[in-house]
Design a protein around this nucleic acid. Structure first.
Lengths: 148, 148
DNA sequence: CTTGCTCCTATAGCGGCTATAGCCCGCAGA
DNA sequence: TCTGCGGGCTATAGCCGCTATAGGAGCAAG
């Protein structure tokens, strides 16, 4: 059974460009080509792509997935590594949740706080302008953290 | 009172490059220059930068902050707009928290689940390889969502 | 006058895609 | 056989919010 790139894209809910991108990044092996130069995938390739997408949906980064694929390809390697990667990911996720919850609290305070209800001026703008309020360093690393 | 870029950087916990980036993006006005061509900032500029940083720390995007600054600059404009921006931001934050909590659950399941404890093979790898498990679309948009 | 820090512009890189341009391929219908 | 259309191909640029680098110029102290 051979599939075109569009077929495995549809099957896995991935865009065609993303599949080519994964190939360039080394996550997917270079597939066979038909006589016209188009990619032809086998079932194993489809499985591999599904693995990648599942891992992405769980927030693993492409380098992490590269490592996980390596472990999947060589079952004799110790599973502890996979567990460590998953645990590192879980840790990151929990840190983000904590950071976002702080953020949520601040936003709620901003919207419902004393300024918000008072007649004339904008509570939101006032809160932002008062930079005394932002000197706690809680959100220090939010600017560079991503959910992927 | 005039400040160099390094001074307002230190005062607001911003990098010098980031300040120049904000200027290029139109968040900060082009400041005066001294005779040597270096930027010289007034107190108002410092205030404005602090506003931007405070808003960033609360997860507002640069376009959102552009709008908020517009509202801050023109107090006669209706505050409802600022509230709407803040509410939109709060909504986004809450959606992210919900998505990350789902993710956290999945990761915990993956690590503590039946596979994890069973003797020989890697629970984590097996879970990822079994793409039946990933057909629920819960995490659909995580790949492109950012915390900024 | 030299040292060493800051400042300047311009450009490239991060992650994980997405979108575009400009071409080729294969198949269906008239 | 021609024509059109939906795919496929490569290469490149863009998104966000920075960060880092190269290669130079300014500036204050010793």
């Amino acid at each position: 059974m051979e599939f075109s790139i569009g077929e495995i894209a549809r099957a896995t809910g991935t865009s065609v460009q993303t599949i080519r991108y994964y190939e360039k990044r080394g996550l997917l092996r270079e597939p066979m080509r038909n006589e016209g130069g188009q990619r032809r995938y086998a079932s194993a390739d489809l499985q591999r792509l599904a693995f990648v997408r599942h891992a992405r949906s769980l927030g693993f980064s492409l380098p992490q997935i590269t490592d996980l694929l390596e472990l999947a390809d060589h079952p004799q390697l110790p599973c502890a590594n996979a567990d460590q990667i998953a645990k590192a990911n879980l840790k990151r996720v929990r840190e983000r949740i904590a950071a976002l919850r702080d953020l949520e609290q601040e936003l709620v305070k901003m919207l419902d706080g004393p300024h918000g209800k008072s007649g004339g001026s904008c509570g939101v703008i006032e809160t932002l302008a008062d930079h005394q309020l932002c000197l706690h360093e809680k959100h220090k690393d939010l600017a560079t953290s991503h959910v992927e």
